[in-house]
Write a protein that binds this DNA or RNA. Structure first.
Length: 419
RNA sequence: GGAGGCGUGCCCGAGUGGCCGAAGGGAGCGCACUGCUAAUGCGUUAAGGGGGGUUACCUCCUUCAAGGGUUCAAAUCCCUUCGCCUCCGCCA
C-alpha cells in the first residue's frame, strides 16, 4: 500500500513515479474515491460529534428532561447509522482500489515496459573455460547420485525431487555456510513457520496480486509460503520498534513452496524450478533514512556469498515494469550456468520501503521521530539453484565436481566423483 | 478433541451501562528542592485519522485483543474469532 497522503498532496509526483513502470492502472479511480471518502468522513464525524454531545447530555439531564433528550439522541443515532454504512462501503472500495496500486519506484530504477528493459549493471567472475563439453546439472546430479526426480514424480508429481547422498550434505553445508556468513554480519537466525494466515500473505503483498502462485490449505485457511519473507515481515505486525535498535536483521530459513502455475514445460527437470526448495533469506527492518544503505548491505552480502562459492554472475537491475507490486527497487544476481549456456536467477534483493509496513502496521519510534519502518529482503542462498550453479561451474572432465574452498569445512569432502 | 479461566495505556493493576481515554502504583521525562549518584513535591508521558492554522498549536473523530450485535450511550451486556493459561483425553 502506498501513502494516500502523497496521492492527495502531490499527485504529479506519483504519476511521474508510475511512469517508470510504464504507467499504472487505477490511479485516477483512487484519487476520485479518496476525495469522496474524505468528504463523507467529514460529514460523519460532524454528526458523530453532535451525537456524542447529545448522548452525554442525557447522563446529566434531570428525570423530567430525559425522555426528550433520549429522543433527540435517538434521531441522531439513526441518521448516523445510514451515513456510516455509506462511509464503510466507500472506505472498503477505496482500500480495495488502493491495495492494487504498486509501490513507487526509486528514481534510480530504469524505466521500462518489459523484461528486455532490465539493465545489466556488471558481470563478475570468469565463466569457466572447459576443454570438454559441459554437462547440465541434471546429468551431473544423476551420475553423482545427488537427487532423484523420477521417483519424486511417482510420489508427488513433477517438479519435486528427492535429494540423496552427497546432495543432502551439499544442501546442509550451504545452509550452514549462509547462516554463519550472516551471523557474522549481525543477522539473527530464525526458522520461520511456513503456514501462514491470509493477513501475512496480504500484508507482504503476495496477495491479492499473485494468488495463483501459492498453495492454500483450504481446510484450515492457511497458505504455504513461497519464501520466509512472509513470516519474517509479519513477525512484527502491529508492533513499534525502537528507532535506536534499527536496523533489525534476520537470517530466515525455511522450505519454500511455489505452484509454478503457467510455467509448464519450462525447466521441467532437475532443481531449477521445483515446487519445494529450501532458502536462506536476509530480512531487515530499517529506518526510512537508512534503508538504501541497508539495501546496499544486503546486495553486498549476496555478492560476497556468490564470490565465496566461486560462481560467476551478472547483476541485473530490474526496470519499472519488472518490479512486482511491492518493490521500490529490485536487483537480481544471475549465475552463469555453463551446462545450460545461460544465466539463471539465483538471488533477488528488494527494498519494499514502507509498502509492506503500512499494510502490516510496523512502526518505529525514536526521540521526536516516528513512522513506518522500511522492510527489505534479499536471498542469501536459494539452496537448489545454488547447487545447480556449483555443479555446472565446478565440473571436471572426468565427470566429478570440485567443492569451492569456502564450502569444504562444511562438506568435509573437496569433490564429488561418480560412484 | 473435551472442560474451564484470562486478554485494560511502557509495566503492574482497578474498573459490571453515562461523570472513563480510563483510578492507583511502578518506570521514564521535565521542573523545584537537596552540598552530590538518594529522598520529597509538582507537572508530564498512547496511537491512528479528518479539518483549521502566522507549523509554537487548535479542534473533532476513532481506538480498553480483533470483528460483529444490543442501547440514546459499552472497557463494562451478548455473539464470533484470535491469543495465552489450567485440567482431562490423544499423539509426536
Amino acid at each position: 500500500m502506498i501513502d494516500l497522503r502523497l496521492v492527495r498532496e502531490d499527485l504529479g509526483a506519483v504519476r511521474a513515479a508510475y511512469e517508470r513502470r510504464g504507467g499504472v492502472e487505477g490511479l485516477e479511480a483512487v484519487v476520485e474515491l479518496d476525495a469522496r471518502y474524505r468528504a463523507l468522513l467529514g460529514r460523519v464525524e460532524a454528526l458523530r460529534a453532535e451525537h456524542n454531545r447529545a448522548s452525554k447530555a442525557i447522563g446529566k439531564a434531570s428525570p423530567e428532561e430525559r425522555p426528550a433528550a433520549i429522543e433527540d439522541a435517538r434521531v441522531l443515532a439513526e441518521q448516523l447509522k445510514d451515513i456510516e454504512v455509506d462511509l464503510e462501503r466507500l472506505e472498503a472500495e477505496l482500500n480495495d482500489a488502493a491495495s492494487f496500486l504498486p509501490n513507487l519506484p526509486h528514481h534510480s530504477v530504469p524505466e521500462g515496459t518489459s523484461e528486455d528493459d532490465n539493465v545489466v549493471e556488471r558481470e563478475v567472475g570468469d565463466k569457466p573455460d572447459f576443454d570438454f563439453e559441459a554437462k547440465d546439472h541434471v546429468a551431473l546430479g544423476e551420475s553423482l547420485g545427488l537427487f532423484d526426480s523420477e521417483r519424486a514424480a511417482k510420489t508427488s508429481g513433477s517438479r519435486f525431487v528427492y535429494l540423496t547422498g552427497k546432495g543432502v550434505i551439499l544442501e546442509l553445508s550451504l545452509v550452514r555456510f549462509a547462516i554463519d556468513f550472516l551471523l557474522e554480519r549481525g543477522f539473527s537466525p530464525v526458522v520461520t513457520p511456513v503456514l501462514v494466515r491470509e493477513r501475512a500473505m496480504y500484508g507482504t503483498g503476495f496477495l491479492p496480486a499473485e494468488e495463483f502462485e501459492y498453495y492454500k490449505i483450504e481446510k484450515d485457511d492457511l497458505y504455504l509460503t513461497g519464501t520466509s519473507e512472509v513470516a519474517l515481515a509479519s513477525m512484527y505486525a502491529d508492533e513499534t520498534l525502537g528507532a535506536e535498535g534499527l536496523p533489525v536483521r534476520y537470517a530466515g530459513m525455511s522450505t519454500c513452496f511455489r505452484r509454478e502455475a503457467g510455467s509448464y514445460g519450462k525447466d521441467t527437470k532437475g532443481l531449477i524450478r521445483v515446487h519445494q526448495f529450501d532458502k536462506i533469506e536476509q530480512f531487515s527492518f530499517a529506518h526510512p533514512d537508512d534503508s538504501w544503505d541497508e539495501f546496499a548491505a544486503i546486495r553486498t552480502n549476496q555478492e560476497k556469498i556468490l564470490q565465496a562459492l566461486e560462481i560467476p554472475y551478472r547483476v541485473l537491475v530490474m526496470c519499472g515494469s519488472d518490479l512486482g507490486a511491492v518493490a521500490a527497487k529490485k536487483v537480481d544476481n544471475e549465475a552463469w550456468i555453463p551446462g545450460g549456456n545461460r544465466y539463471l536467477e539465483l538471488t533477488s534483493a528488494t527494498n519494499a520501503t514502507d509498502y509492506q509496513s503500512r499494510r502490516l502496521n510496523i512502526r518505529y519510534k525514536g526521540a521526536g521521530d516516528k513512522g513506518l519502518v522500511h522492510t527489505l529482503n534479499g536471498t542469501a542462498c536459494a539452496v537448489g539453484r545454488t547447487i545447480v550453479a556449483l555443479l555446472e561451474n565446478h565440473q571436471r572432465a572426468d565427470g566429478s565436481v570440485s567443492i569451492p574452498g569456502a564450502l569444504r569445512p562444511y562438506t568435509g569432502f573437496d569433490s564429488i566423483a561418480p560412484e
